[in-house]
């Protein structure tokens, strides 16, 4: 069990399996299947990104890339050839990983990360989190 009491502004916590089964839950996330299902479907995306792309950040500035068919090929230079949208099988996908996802609403946020093939989700109060982190 992870100690989430120390997390600033935490209002609830849950650990879910990759298939969405709730393993444990506390606070406002107690037995909240809606949240667990939604977090699970959020997890079932694949978005490999190459932040260390060789092309300069201004490569796209010439206005070539505007969603037309030919423009697609232009940017693929900076993208893994195998990484066709959802496939996630390119070199980038293999070496790259997102560590954490934050879904921030006006007053509350949900932070999730994956550890030991289990999804940890914590619900946090925005104002309280900000106040604590400033101290």
């Amino acid at each position: 069990m992870v100690h989430v009491e120390k997390v600033p502004g935490q209002k609830g916590y849950m650990v879910i399996q990759e298939d969405g089964t709730i393993l444990s839950s506390t606070g406002e996330l107690s037995s909240n299947e809606l949240t667990s299902n939604q977090i699970t479907s959020l997890m079932s995306h694949s978005l490999p990104v190459d932040f260390n792309t060789s092309s300069s950040p201004t490569a796209g500035l010439n206005g070539d890339v505007n969603g037309s068919g030919e423009a697609g090929g232009h940017l693929n230079v900076s993208f893994s050839p195998g990484g066709s949208s959802n496939g996630g099988s390119g070199d980038v996908a293999r070496g790259f990983k997102w560590n954490r996802i934050t879904v921030q609403f006006k007053d509350e946020s949900y932070v999730a990360c994956l550890s030991n093939r289990r999804i940890h989700v914590v619900k946090r109060d925005n104002a309280e989190s900000a106040a604590t982190s400033q101290q």
């Binding site: 694949s46 560590n99 954490r100 990360c113 550890s115 940890h120 989190s129």
Partner: peptide, 17 residues
């Protein structure tokens, strides 16, 4: 999955928003 496995969930969950 969208996220990669991380060894220390506490660190990530408590990170600044």
């Amino acid at each position: 999955l969208l996220l990669g496995d991380t060894p220390n969930p506490e660190k990530h969950l408590g990170a600044p928003l």
